[in-house]
Amino acid sequence: MDCVFCALIRTGSASWVTRGPVASAFAPLSPIAPGHTLVVPTSHFADLFDTPPTVLAETTALVRLVADGMRSALRADGVNILNASGPGSEQSVPHLHFHVIPRWIGDGFSTWPGGRSQHQVDGDPVARLASAVAG
Rank of each mutant, 00 (worst) to 15 (best):
Q118R: 14
T59C: 03
L8T: 12
V93N: 06
R116P: 00
W104S: 04
P53T: 14
A33H: 09
V17F: 10
S13A: 09
F45R: 15
R10W: 00
L8Y: 13
T59A: 01
G108T: 03
T11G: 11
S15Y: 05
V40Y: 11
I9K: 08
W16G: 06
I32Q: 13
A7C: 07
E58V: 04
F109E: 01
D122W: 00
N80D: 09
P94I: 00
V22W: 12
G12E: 10
R128L: 13
A57M: 08
V39A: 04
G35T: 11
S85R: 03
P28A: 00
Q118E: 14
A76E: 08
F45D: 12
G20E: 06
D68T: 12
I81V: 15
L38V: 12
F49M: 10
R64G: 14
L56I: 09
A61F: 01
M1S: 14
A61I: 04
S30C: 09
A134K: 14
V4M: 10
I105Q: 06
W112Q: 01
V55H: 06
H99S: 03
R75E: 15
A132M: 13
D122P: 12
I32M: 10
V66R: 11
S30Y: 13
P94K: 03
W16D: 08
L129F: 05
A127E: 15
N83P: 00
S85W: 00
Q91T: 01
V121C: 08
W104G: 02
A7F: 06
P34E: 01
A27G: 12
P31Y: 10
S30K: 14
G78D: 13
H99N: 02
S117R: 07
G78V: 02
M1V: 14
D107I: 03
Q120V: 13
P53W: 04
S15H: 14
P113C: 00
G88M: 01
T11I: 07
A14C: 06
S13N: 11
R75A: 15
H44K: 12
C3T: 11
R19A: 12
L62E: 08
M1G: 15
I81A: 04
V63C: 13
I101P: 01
P102E: 01
L65F: 01
P21H: 02
T42M: 04
A25G: 09
P94N: 03
S24T: 15
L38P: 12
S89E: 03
R10K: 13
N80Q: 02
T11H: 14
R19F: 05
F5H: 09
V133D: 06
P113D: 03
V126I: 15
F49L: 11
D50F: 05
V17Y: 07
H95F: 01
R103Q: 02
